[in-house]
Computed example of a mutant assay.
Amino acid sequence: MRVMTLTEISDRLEIQQLLIDYSTAIDSRRFDDLDAVFTGDAYIDYRVSGGIDGRFPEVKAWLKDVLPNFPAYYHMLGNVDVRLDGDRATSRAICFNPMVLGGEQGQVYFVGIWYVDEFVRTEHGWRMSRRVEEKCFDKIV
């Protein structure tokens, strides 16, 4: 096993924090906080969980419009695998995302996905330039 440099450790921690910042912004319904997570032209694909795909501004507007329909939800991330390549990086992380459906039945939509992400180092630090969801499972209970 190769010993990581302090720069590599710092880059990995900053990228992992971006993943947390994404989840915190979504779960707190602070969608403007996503501006510090994504590049302005980032491509995002949420189609496997019933969403849309497109560039960041379009997807951010869609999130602001759609997510208030869910009374409660959260993201739990794990198995974060970050791969660095100079000023670019990739990661794959598992996400468990239960979402309470509106209405009186109290149903929960359980979503298990992989986030497959690409990152670029910018003058403001690391930013996500691409996010594609890969489906593991989903079930309404």
Rank of each mutant, 00 (worst) to 15 (best):
E133H: 11
I113N: 00
Y73W: 12
A61L: 14
W126A: 12
L34E: 06
E58M: 12
L13I: 08
N97I: 14
G78N: 09
L34M: 04
Q16I: 12
Y115R: 09
V59E: 02
L19R: 01
R2Q: 10
L101A: 08
N69P: 04
E133M: 06
D85T: 11
G50K: 05
I140N: 03
Y22A: 08
F137H: 13
G103Y: 12
R131K: 14
V37L: 09
F119H: 10
L77G: 15
D45E: 11
V120Y: 01
E58L: 09
L67C: 13
D53N: 14
F96M: 11
Q105M: 13
T122M: 07
Q107L: 12
P57L: 10
A89I: 07
H75K: 08
A42D: 01
K60G: 04
R2N: 06
G50N: 10
G50Y: 06
E104M: 09
V59M: 13
I94P: 00
R131N: 09
D65K: 11
P57V: 02
Y22T: 02
H124C: 13
L13Q: 10
W62E: 11
L63M: 15
D53V: 01
V82P: 00
G86S: 08
R2F: 01
E118S: 07
T24M: 04
D35T: 02
G125Y: 07
S23T: 15
L101V: 06
I140Y: 13
D53H: 05
V100D: 05
S28L: 06
V111E: 13
V37Y: 05
S129G: 10
F110G: 07
E123M: 08
Q16K: 05
C95H: 05
A36Q: 11
R88C: 05
T7S: 13
